[in-house]
Amino acid sequence: MNNIFVYCEITEDKVIADVSLELLSKGRKLASELNVKLEAVVIGTDLKDVEAQIFPYGVDVVHVADDKNLFPYTTLPHSAIVLEIFKHEKPEIAIFGATSIGRDLAPRIASALRCGLTADCTSLEFGDHFENKTQTEYKNLLYQIRPAFGGNIIATIINPETRPQMATVREGVMKKEILDAKYKGKVKKVNTAAILKDEHFVVQIIERHMEASKINIKNSQVIIAGGYGVGSKENFKLLYDLADVLGAQVGASRAAVDAGYSEHERQIGQTGVTVRPKLYIACGISGAVQHRAGMDQSAQIISINTDLNAPINHIADFTIIGSITDVIPKMIKYYKANSK
């Protein structure tokens, strides 16, 4: 069987993005299960020693394409290079971050290779499949699992016939885990001159205003998250008050972001970030499955909701029936009273 490939992104600080390290960690486990190698693709400019950042995650081979004009990312040069590598190496599986870059690149690659791609997977595992129509048995297919259709269902998607089996995964869904600090793989330099042509550079970046994400809810131990039920942007300020007192970060459901109560950077769930804090306080969040996919591994969950039957309450350790305008000020008051 052929190997598992992870496309690695380069951040504004010129290091490998967290999401890519998370995918390498997952890719390592999948590769070991299949007894195949884990390979990484890194494309950028001035990538000297980049391999040192990724070998500890158990990478066996890294394909490095280092050339001018490959950073910042643009679609055509990166897809030309990835396609060339994939045509040559014929990966069994290829995983991309479900980021601005990965969601631009992966579909273009999948279309060119005419293979299947599943967006925003929340879980990847192996399983078998028997196709009744052709009486064919498939072993160790990649089960690409994602919530679908308004979150009412969890779909398991497979690509029985086409390779690579491609998937994108959001940041925070997989856990970043170093395998072995001394792990050493092989570096394969990509001959970019043989691949890149002028026509790949027709889209030119003329201006960029990027900032390293200031909001980092992913690493917070306590998260106060608000949903549509918070009711207004003003009420959302109460969440910040509580967060200040508890040293927490504020998160939001998609409905709250869509309603303009919160910035997109704070969105938790399938189309936002995935978090695993020690304590998750869900304020006025009903708990659609896409949201729960991003927080159900929190160690403790408190739900504040006026509706006893809200789905979120089913996974909460404590459910407080009440409005946030009533409950949050009391939580602040009694936290202060009890902590000294």
Partner: peptide, 20 residues
């Protein structure tokens, strides 16, 4: 190329939620 292998309706793993 993508096939739907399985569709599951979402079932909640009920925790022992304490209501207050």
């Amino acid at each position: 190329p993508t096939k739907v292998k399985k569709i599951e309706n979402v079932v909640f793993a009920h925790k022992d939620s304490k209501v207050m």
